[in-house]
Design a protein around this nucleic acid. Structure first.
Lengths: 205, 205
DNA sequence: CATATCTGACATGAAGCTCTGTCAATTGAC
DNA sequence: GTCAATTGACAGAGCTTCATGTCAGATATG
């Protein structure tokens, strides 16, 4: 009933809980990105985090909830950095698009774990896949809205804008996957260039 | 040492083995497509096929080998029907591309199990994912080769043709996924149309 | 019919994961 | 210093799957 909460190692109960949650998310990103979705078990993540399973349930209901959070944080970062890139960019439509795409690719290349999780492993387990789809649609919507800003009257009308956005986002994901897997010999710049070119064509009429 | 093989229910030992293999592949397609990659266990597949685990090992070394075979058969069918569509089509480059794309989409829509397996579930477990990537690259290469036939001198040079092909194939997969999941309100025709339009633009200079 | 092969149902053990519980050691509050 | 809160290590039950084994009944052959 009462709350026998007190300081421990100079931190409040809330801070400690938050710290452990952060440790678990970080460990989840590491294991998920390194070992893959199959081996990203609660046991493995707890071991990586140096915490007991008990603390897992303190912050998450189970494996899937954590993995979804991991994916979500990456999506947040991509969104933030892409929007920031758009805010900074003041040039023409195509240049603005290029800046946003470059920001997206940069997130995935700066931290390989994030790249693998976001683009490869996020399609593994069902709950994560569902969330991935929602996020992708969200980005597709963002792309569609931004297209209207960029192209004005020449922007596509629904549902053609959604179709174009999905074609664009899916293609970029596949291309990034191939690059992350070392299966195609291209530079991140070439990826950005090709994606920008395609976007510039498909996002308006 | 010797081969105590004989007829059983009017079939030879080889036929019976082949029949069971076929049953398992069919059951694998059904379970894989209905329940998803997580639940497509050997146990479940054997139950669906009405066979014992013993016969599983008769034809496959394990779960992954069967799932890879399932994916491969779908890929074969897509390849065959796409090439057949190209062979029948005698019109211009864009029309030929449309015919091939329509054949691809048709395979996935004629049998929803195949659609889900090929486009959604094939990204689940690692060995299947690896095979999926190989097949996608193969198709991307096919797209690249065909582009050279279609566009001649105006076709892209390596690695730009591979980049364009991956952007195209990945986008088509994502769009098809959204459609199969009922997340976007489009018709197969619209998918074919949008994909054709994009292909016609990105596959040459 | 007699015998060997083939089949399908069931049993079994090993392994991994989830989730709960126990308990000694550490740390902070009084 | 004393005591309660907190932590981390570990044990263990329950579950699912994998992989192999057993065995009675069905089927073909002579």
């Amino acid at each position: 009933m009462d709350r026998p909460s007190r300081q421990y190692r100079g931190k409040s109960a809330e801070q400690r809980t938050a710290d452990r949650r952060e440790q678990l998310l970080e460990a989840g990103l590491t294991v998920f990105g390194r070992e893959g979705g199959d081996r990203a078990t609660m046991t493995a993540i707890c071991q990586e985090a140096g915490l007991t399973e008990r603390y897992f349930y303190e912050s998450f209901s189970g494996r899937d909830e954590l993995l979804v959070c991991v994916v979500e944080r990456i999506a947040d970062e991509i969104r933030e950095r892409a929007l920031a890139a758009l805010a900074e960019s003041e040039r023409g439509p195509e240049e603005r698009a290029r800046a946003a795409i470059a920001a997206f690719v940069a997130v995935l290349t700066d931290d390989p774990r994030k790249g693998r999780v976001a683009v490869v492993e996020s399609t593994g387990s069902e709950p994560v896949r569902v969330r991935r789809r929602e996020l992708l649609r969200q980005f597709a919507g963002l792309v569609a809205v931004e297209s209207r800003e960029l192209w004005g009257d020449r922007a596509l009308q629904p549902p053609h804008d959604q179709i174009a956005a999905l074609l664009f986002v899916g293609g970029l994901a596949e291309l990034t996957t191939a690059w992350l897997g070392g299966e195609i010999d291209v530079t991140p710049d070439q990826i950005v260039e090709a994606a920008t070119r395609q976007y510039a064509f498909t996002a308006h009429r």
